[in-house]
């Protein structure tokens, strides 16, 4: 057990050193620059603990996380359906792919403007922005995964005369699991950044709203504390996705 922890720390030595250096530089800088610009580490830690230890404040983080997860779930559903349709009926690619590429070219900020004009309700605006930004990523990633299924394997399974559902469950779904996980990894980070922009538009709760409040109050420790909350969420998501990946893709040869 102790050896395992020791190995884990040893493998992360580089990261620990660079973060340590960054913290030292930050702390030293805080002694030469006004605290409203660069607060010291103690103030930041205090603000962070205030956020995570207060149920009222933690709720804001949960609201943001819920918004991100609901939007990602919806975008994944739409993306998965579109990519599966394109997988079974290749002719649909000619109609769907150009639209997706066009939508991908629209900046997140444009979706923010459109959502303000189109939707009066804040929650609807945030959901719309996130779904519009993430759906093309999911669709294209999964579509690529389906396209990459070897023809040899498809022919092998077809020699047993499967139904469409059996072809999906026995071949397509297991083949695209790596693509699904990659899409989630990319989109969790992307959606978190977009969610901050979306929450600046009239939201009265959430991390974005708290960041906006911190900016208005010139509360630098608060702004950093809320940013750390987001970073923690991202790291936790990546950790969960990494563990899921190790479990689901355990059939792959281990790299030494």
């Amino acid at each position: 057990m102790f050896g395992k922890i020791k190995n884990s720390i040893a493998s992360k030595k580089g990261g620990i050193i660079s973060i340590g250096v960054l913290l030292i530089v930050w702390e030293i800088s805080s002694h030469f620059v006004p605290s409203y610009l660069i607060p010291n580490l103690q103030a930041i830690l205090g603000a962070f603990l205030k956020v995570v230890l207060s149920w009222k404040l933690v709720q804001h983080a949960f609201i943001t996380v819920a918004r991100i997860l609901v939007a990602l779930g919806l975008a994944f559903l739409v993306g998965a359906l579109l990519s599966i349709f394109m997988g079974f009926f290749e002719e649909l690619e000619d109609y769907i792919l150009p639209v997706l590429h066009f939508v991908m070219g629209v900046p997140a900020l444009s979706w923010v403007v459109f959502s303000i004009i189109w939707f009066p309700k804040v929650e609807m605006r945030i959901l719309f922005i996130l779904v519009a930004c993430c759906t093309p990523n999911y669709t294209l990633e999964l579509h690529d995964g389906i396209k990459a299924i070897p023809k040899d394997l498809k022919e092998m399974l077809e020699s047993f005369r499967p139904s469409r559902m059996q072809l999906f469950t026995k071949l397509i779904l297991p083949s695209i699991i790596p693509a699904i996980l990659t899409a989630w990894k990319i989109n969790v980070g992307y959606a978190t950044r977009v969610a901050m922009v979306a929450e600046l538009v009239g939201a009265t709760a959430g991390v974005g709203f708290q960041l906006l409040s911190a900016q208005e109050l010139f509360d630098m420790p608060g702004a950093i504390a809320w940013t750390l909350v987001l970073v923690t969420f991202l790291l936790l998501s990546q950790f969960i996705l990494g563990k899921t990946e190790s479990k689901l893709l355990s059939y792959r040869p281990k790299m030494n």
């Binding site: 022919e155 047993f160 893709l249």
Partner: peptide, 16 residues
């Protein structure tokens, strides 16, 4: 279904 069996040039095993 089950009336024709095939052995292919390569094994074509599902890696998972």
């Amino acid at each position: 279904r089950t009336k024709i069996g095939a052995v292919f040039q390569t094994d074509r095993l599902l890696p998972w």
